[in-house]
Design a protein around this nucleic acid. Structure first.
Lengths: 371, 371
DNA sequence: TCCGATTTGTTCGTATGTATG
DNA sequence: GCATACATACGAACAAATCGG
């Protein structure tokens, strides 16, 4: 027990225990300790190394070696360092979510984290169950795609509980306004705006807009839709705005368009869709009525999903980074997680929400109108 | 992560996990490792040091370094019934896998289990990493979609270690023959058979078959393709069979068909595709050549994916249960998990692999030929 | 019981890389 | 840009424990 590194180790221990080194305070540098004990750097490093693995100190390259706050250790130590990140999405298999999940999974697994998946099917009850499990078991962080973000969220308490338990979370695609969380979202208002602007500039004035309004995205896109009309001095026929909920997505817009195209008069020349999924659905309706896209009707999607390219008529749509967004979300949550566990408050405070700019991708489903 | 000591550390970890180093067995001496990795003793000691502090190895001066018996540690750890199921797939975001994952997630979360996701991108190295994590952390069961199932699998040892650790696993879509595991698969041979039979009965005799042959599914579908020809007395032109690997999937088949259609003579009248993804890709090629489906060329897909319905020409294809398969897999693994933990061996022994019958879905991409 | 070969433990010196402030 | 501090890596030496002959 009278090895040199053990002497150094014990000396440092004493200073921690007698309070000379307070939590988060920098201890002597390695070269300082070399002088004090007249030993080599290697010996000092062995001594400090053992104290680090035993959880008394932590090192920060370029800054120094610091004393750990034991009180914090016990709260986070309560579970084995499993390195788990949870992802809650509305749908796992549909649409753009698989890509988002893949992007996140790829980044997280590269950094040694597990990815646990929960899907809510856009249902608050399921969201509650998922949050319940996350609170019960051990997770280091959560990436959440909010369920029905435009409606009042009955699970607010669960989110507040996450905060109380020091489990960081971020939101993607949308966020609950009340919580003011860190988030990565699209600029949906601008998206709706440029969808519509594009059509107006092509000469369209009779444009139907379909918006899913239980998610906040739909509301914002509608806002952009209206703004584009206003700015270009085009009057919006109120009956040209169709709002629907997740539950109605397979029926209401389709039926509305069938009706509208059957009447034969006041037929719209263009359609703004909440997303590509709807656009594809409406494409079928248009085909049934023996109309051509884009000759008879122009149509704009949103999200640039795989669907936009799978059809014969390649969709004009708004770009969505998908797997890149998943990756960004993963990076953001890991940065925060490390800041929390590493008792380095700085990164947490400097983290900022990201709003991704919306850009139009022009393909073959929109066309200049010649009246 | 690419530090020398980390390389050595990971290498030793692998040998522990794949069973090369048995509990209490002596591992290579420091000087041995120095030679093997061509590093200094210091580096070797750092690597071993970390593994010792992490509880994988223990050192005895004068004797050597030994492997810790994890089973002793884990039986006590076992108490924390975390209820985790891991799913390893080749791709998370592509094609039919999201649906499979959703089916499994839905069933498992309803039964109080977590779902952790791993994707291999059809790469053995990534598969190894995933298995590594599953062996290291605590999982109750694993659902695996094999990576390149037709090729020799270098990770067999990891699977055997799963068995040794009493972590049950099942395979979906395909399986490694050597392991003879419980599995849920399609009847791929019949699938290829009825794809082809359908075309032959429509009068086609000049049929190209595209098969991805690094997965076992492709080999079986090709077998069915050949059998259908044989049974109907139709000669197969060897140049009409195109095999490709995952890496070539975006290029080789497309280029082959472009070439074939350019020649102008001996143009095929029908195409059998390994899956819908390829069918859609080839549909574009056919369009470029100003040919019509199904008037000029009939085409049959496989899997009945979302793509089969997204295009203007709805694909004739083979039905795949997708989310139902995920659900079945989830049910099967839970049954086994419960049997193992409940020390009720019966259910485990009675569990049987499922082969799902293949059925043809006839849509608009195939047509009677009139010569 | 002792010897010698092997193996891990401790310590020093040196050099270069990288992050921080 | 610069000094400081930690991170990785090589080389060398001697000490202490183990084990087979």
């Amino acid at each position: 027990m009278e090895t040199k590194y053990n002497i150094v180790k014990q000396a440092i221990m004493s200073k921690i225990l007698d309070g000379t080194f307070q939590p988060h305070q920098k201890i002597y540098s390695e070269s300082e300790l070399m002088k004090q004990f007249d030993v080599s750097r290697h010996t000092v490093r062995v001594a400090i190394g053992e104290l680090v693995t035993q959880g008394w100190l932590y090192r920060e390259q370029g800054a120094g070696t610091f004393c750990v706050d034991r009180s914090e250790v016990e709260t986070s130590m309560n579970a084995s360092n499993q390195k788990n990140i949870a992802i809650i999405t509305t749908y796992i298999s549909d649409y753009i979510f698989p890509s988002i999940i893949r992007g996140a999974e790829s980044y997280l697994s590269q950094h040694g984290y597990h990815v646990s998946l929960f899907s809510t099917n856009n249902n608050h009850e399921n969201e509650r169950k998922a949050l319940n499990k996350i609170l019960t078991q051990r997770f280091d962080g959560v990436i959440i795609e909010p369920t029905k973000s435009a409606l009042f969220n009955p699970n607010i308490n669960y989110y507040l509980n996450l905060e109380r338990k020091n489990i960081p979370y971020i939101m993607i695609n949308a966020f609950y306004d009340e919580l003011d969380p860190l988030s990565i979202t699209m600029n949906d208002e601008k998206g709706g705006y440029i969808q519509t602007k594009h059509l107006i500039e092509l000469g369209h004035t009779n444009i139907i807009g379909f918006f899913k309004t239980d998610d906040i995205q739909g509301n914002k896109r509608m806002k952009g839709f209206l703004q584009a009309h206003r700015e270009h001095g085009v009057f919006v026929d109120p009956s040209n705005i169709v709002i629907y909920s997740s539950e109605e997505k397979a029926t209401k817009p389709v039926e509305f368009l069938q009706e509208k195209l059957s009447v034969g008069e006041d037929v719209p020349t263009a359609i703004v869709c909440y997303n590509d999924e709807l656009a594809i659905r409406l494409l079928d309706v248009i085909r049934e009525k023996n109309l051509q896209v884009p000759e008879d009707i122009s149509i704009v999607g949103f999200d640039d999903s795989f669907m936009a390219n799978a059809t014969e008529v390649k969709l004009t749509t708004i770009q969505h980074p998908k797997s890149k967004m998943g990756e960004s979300a993963a990076k953001m949550i890991l940065d925060i997680v490390k800041a929390v566990t590493g008792s380095n408050k700085k990164a947490r405070d400097t983290a900022e929400s990201i709003v991704i700019d919306s850009e139009l991708i022009i393909r073959d489903s929109t066309k200049q109108i010649n009246k």
